[in-house]
Design a protein around this nucleic acid. Structure first.
Lengths: 129, 129
DNA sequence: ATCTATAGTTCTGAACTTACGAACAATGGA
DNA sequence: TCCATTGTTCGTAAGTTCAGAACTATAGAT
């Protein structure tokens, strides 16, 4: 099995971080990993933001988060231990993660009762000019 | 000509903001608009981050920034006056824009002499696992 | 040792997004 | 009226994402 790729902290870019966190499923996953003290398995997120995520898709999301430098993954037997790289990122880009997670909390608090229309990169083509 | 669409501030989402700013051309445009006191024309950005952007592409970038709620555009005769919506966004998501722009400065300072490999949403498929 | 269940990954095609050239529309000035 | 300038739209090629099916790796049971 291929070893897991993790960028070294100097290779982590703001663009990659923002891109990774511009998806509602991925921010949800990341926030929970960042919040919890202990590491989390991938399959803990088969249901997230009120919908079921197919596991192949989940796997891609975790790869995206890893490649963006947001989380660290370690295989432990049959499962995966995911931990956040918040501390490193905070050192390189002070305040960034905190601001994003905070903004997210504000937003989900506000929209609690409504249903979300679709994804993070909203279909621009559908609602024109 | 179609009137310009601007989301009202409550409809602005973190996801859309992050997505819009996960592109190096768009952050560059947005930072400059946010920094300058006076409004900026689209065509002031035909060259940005050391490359020439075709104007059809530029137009799409401005549309993306507008739809994300990051800028406001107003047609003035043949040209467009673009201003940032920082104040409104700061009110809704305190600290978010500041942290992102700051992180960006840190990054471009560090990578000044090297050339950037590619775009914000990095070709994941090319550098695997 | 083999079988089985579980956790994640890879492959593949369809759907969606993005970039950019070419043609277009709107405005202001000669 | 004609022309230059600024920005938009359209069409197509390239790239990205999603999700089902098939697969791999490990742990535990028999």
């Amino acid at each position: 099995m291929r070893p897991l790729f993790h960028p070294s902290i100097e290779d982590v870019t703001v663009e990659a971080i923002l891109h990774a966190l511009s998806d509602p499923v991925r921010v949800a996953i990341f926030s929970q990993i960042a919040n919890s003290q202990c590491s989390q398995r991938c399959s803990d997120f088969l249901t997230v933001v009120d919908r079921d995520i197919p596991k192949s898709t989940l796997s891609q999301h975790f790869t995206a988060l890893r490649h963006a430098g947001l989380i660290r993954g370690e295989r432990r037997g049959v499962e995966m231990q995911n931990t956040s790289r918040c501390a490193e990122i905070e050192h390189r880009f002070p305040g960034l993660i905190k601001a994003i997670i905070h903004a997210h909390k504000i937003q989900s608090r506000a929209q609690r009762p409504s249903k979300k229309p679709r994804s993070g990169a909203p279909s621009r083509r559908s609602a024109r000019e």
